[in-house]
């Protein structure tokens, strides 16, 4: 194919389309690896902790999330589509019985926010929130 400017643009835009596909396997497995490292490969239950995040985040640089994990000792939060999946680790003392915390995080694109809680009895719990991160039509 003759390398005209038009063709270059077509090839170039194709490359961009590939780059923007969501949740590439490589990134997802980094989070899985990190989680496996955290739990030592143990089984992870569900239902023991709650994570609240917006379904659609109006802006990826300030996404409010809330975690409640009664009975948890440690809660680790990951964002599986960020360049580095680790977001924060929360260690709770006895004076915070609901093990609740809210904060604001940065999400690079549409992805899952995953929380892994290590409970009092040594077992693990997991919760997931899928967040769509949008780019506005008119940013100004």
């Amino acid at each position: 194919m003759e390398l005209t400017r038009r063709n270059l643009l077509v090839i170039g835009s194709g490359a961009i389309a590939f780059g923007s596909l969501p949740a590439m396997p490589a990134l997802a497995s980094t989070t899985d690896e990190a989680i496996a490292k955290l739990t030592g490969g143990a089984d992870i239950g569900e239902g023991g902790l709650n994570i609240v995040a917006p379904e659609i985040a109006e802006n990826g640089n300030t996404v409010p999330i809330s975690i409640t994990a009664p009975g948890a000792v440690l809660v680790t939060v990951f964002a599986d589509g960020n360049p580095v999946p680790n977001v924060a680790t929360f260690k709770f003392g006895e004076l915070n019985p609901s093990r609740s915390v809210s904060t604001r995080i940065r999400l690079a694109k549409t992805q899952n926010v995953v929380a892994i809680a290590q409970m009092n009895d040594g077992s693990f719990q997991r919760a997931n929130a899928a967040v769509k991160v949008t780019i506005g039509g008119c940013g100004g």
């Binding site: 949008t134 506005g136 039509g137 940013g139």
Partner: peptide, 8 residues
């Protein structure tokens, strides 16, 4: 209305 993902 929405302009792409922004609520005008």
């Amino acid at each position: 209305v929405m302009i792409r993902a922004d609520h005008l």
